[in-house]
Design a protein around this nucleic acid. Sequence first.
DNA 1: CTGAAAGCGCTTACAG
DNA 2: CTGAAAGCGCTTACAG
Lengths: 352, 352
Amino acid sequence: MSVDAKGRGNVTLKDVAARVGVTQAAVSMALAGNPRISEKTRRAVQRAAAELGYVPSSAGRALRRQSAGAIALIVPNTSHHVFGHAYFMHVLTGVSSSSNAHDAQVIVSTNTDGAEGVNAYERVIRSGSADGVIVTSAAVDDANVEALVASGLPVVLIGNFPYLPEAVSVGTDDVAASRLVTEHLITVHGRSRLLHVSGPLDHQTGIDRREGFLQAVRAHALGENALVLEGDMSEESGAEAVRQAHDMGVEVDGVVFANDDMAFGGMQTLRRLGRRVGDDIALVGFDDFGIARTTTPGITTMRVPAERMALAASDTLFAILAGERTGPAHVELPVEFIARTSCGCAGDALSE
Amino acid sequence: MSVDAKGRGNVTLKDVAARVGVTQAAVSMALAGNPRISEKTRRAVQRAAAELGYVPSSAGRALRRQSAGAIALIVPNTSHHVFGHAYFMHVLTGVSSSSNAHDAQVIVSTNTDGAEGVNAYERVIRSGSADGVIVTSAAVDDANVEALVASGLPVVLIGNFPYLPEAVSVGTDDVAASRLVTEHLITVHGRSRLLHVSGPLDHQTGIDRREGFLQAVRAHALGENALVLEGDMSEESGAEAVRQAHDMGVEVDGVVFANDDMAFGGMQTLRRLGRRVGDDIALVGFDDFGIARTTTPGITTMRVPAERMALAASDTLFAILAGERTGPAHVELPVEFIARTSCGCAGDALSE
DNA sequence: CTGAAAGCGCTTACAG
DNA sequence: CTGAAAGCGCTTACAG
C-alpha cells in the first residue's frame, strides 16, 4: 500500500488492483499485455497505473524471474588505475549502449574485495545483482578470472586470454598490430635502432605488443640493436624508460611505446634530451583514446576500438543470457593505424 | 535448492540450513552475527556457507529490506556527449569510491527515456533499483530534475541549481572562477579586447561562466571591446567561435573559453590564423581533466574538482539515506587556478 | 530462549 | 475462462 509522497512505501500492484477493482494478478497480466485480460480491463489498469505512478519493483520482479535485468562491468582495481583512464570511458560507453538496447541496467564495479570464500567476480552474479559480467583489463595471473570462467557463469572478457581457451572474449590482434607499427618505423622511416617500452608483462597486452615488436625487429635482422624496457602504461614510466635508455648510453632512433600515455611521457623527456621527435627520432604509441591527437607533434598510434569491443562483448553477453548460441569463443576486432607526425609522417593538423 | 554448477539455481539459506541442520532463519541470524545464535552454531553455519559458496540473494534481501543497497549515477543523454567525456570518468571515480566505502553498488544510467508517465529519473528509485540518485550535467530546463527534486526522493545534484532552492547539490563557484581567470588576462597580461566562448546557455555552467566574464570586463571598463559567442563545449565549437570572431573582423587579444576542449579547438584555429598563442593572444580554459596539460602550449585553466564533487555528492547521498541530518543544501568546492603558457605565463614543462 | 510464520512485490502454474 | 495461491530468498516480528 502506498504510504506517502516521500518515496518509501511505493505504489505496488496491489494499489493499482485496488483502484481498478481487480486482483493483483490481473494487473500484472494486463500490464504485460497478456491477452487473457480484456481490452477494457487492460485500459483501466493502464490508466490507474499511470495515475498512481506505478513502477514495477525491481526486487520483486528479480526475485520472481530469477534474473536481475542487469549486467556488471567489472574493473579489477589491481590493474593500473584503469578506472581513471580514458579507455574505461570508451568501454562504458559501449557497454551502456548495448545494455540500453537490451533494456538492462549497468552496474559498475571495482573489485574492492578482501572478501574471503567466494571470488569477488562471482559474487556479483551469485548474489543475483547481475545476470552476467564483463571483465576488462584483467591480469594474466588473476585467479579470480580463471575461476569465474571455469564456473561457467555468463562472462565475457575484453582482451586476449590465450591461456583461457574456454573463455568468451573480444580483443584485438596485438601481436600483429605491434609488428605492423614497428615495421612502419623500419620500412617507411628507415629506423634501425629501436626501443620498445612495453606495458606490464603480467598483462596479455603487454606481452603481445612486446612480441609483435620482437617479431618485427627479428624479421628485419635488427634484433641486435633492439632494446626492450618494461613500463606500466603511465606517462611517468614512459619518461622513465626513455631516460633509462639514455643513461645506459643506448642511442635509439625509433621507439614503440605500448600506449600513448607512455609515448607522451617519453616524448617530453626526449625533447628535454634535445631530440627532435618525428625528425631525428621516430615514435609511435597505442590506443588513440585522446591524448595522441592533442599533443604537438601528434602521436602516431594504433587505434584500439575500445568502444566497439565493449559493444561486441556486451552483445555477446546478452546473447549468452538469452540462451542463443554464441559464435567463436574469441572475437578479434581490427585496429586502425593512425599516422601523425611523431613517427615522421606528416598527417598532423597542428604541424601545418 | 542448489541445482547445478552452472549458475542458475544458486545456493540459498535453505541449502545452508539443511547442511547444518538448523532453520533458514537461524542461518540468517547466524550470518548476521545475531547474539541469539550460539557460538557453536554460528561457526557451523559459517563453515557450511563458505563450503557451499553461499552468497545472499540481492533480490531477496532488497525485497525484504526495502532497500537496494545501490545508488544510481544518472547522466542525461541530452547533454553534450558527457558520457564520453573525461569529466564523467572523474565523477564515476568519486561516486564509486564513496559507494565502495558504503558497501553499495553503483548503477550507471543514461537517460534513454521515451517512457511516458513516470519521469525517467524517478523510475530508477521507484523501481527500487537504487535507493537514491546522483544527477550530473543537467540542463536548466530539464523538467525531470525539477520533478525529481520536488518529489522529495533522495537525490543529490552535481552542479549549481540556483533555481531549485530545495535541491541538495555540490558545485563550484563558476561566476567567481570565471571572473578570476578573466581578470588574470586583464591585470596580469594586460589584455583588453576579450572574447568569451561560452558553454551552452541552457546549462548553469554556461550561464555562470559567462556572467563571471562579463563582471570582470565591466569592472575593468572593457565591456565595449568584449564579445561573447556561444559554443557547445566541443572542440569544434571552440574552433568555430574563433573563426567567427575573425570573420566578423573582431580583433581580440585574449579569449576565455568555458572549457578546455573548446580552448584546444580555438587554439588550433588561432594558430592557423597566424596568431601566436601565449604571446600575441592569451587564452584560458576550464576543467583540467587532461587535455589542457598535454597540448603545446599548455592551456591555462581553472581546475574543476570533479572527482571531489562526486565524492562529496555521494557521501551526502549516503548521509541522507542513513537519515542523518545533512548540512547546507548546496555545497561549494574550491576550484584551482592552473597557470600554463597559453595565457602568457610560463609554467609549462613543455615550454622549457 | 527458540521455532517457524509472515510478508516484502512480483509472475505464473494451478484449481475451480 | 478466471480467481487466487504459491513461491522466488530474505529478515524479523511473533508465538510458544
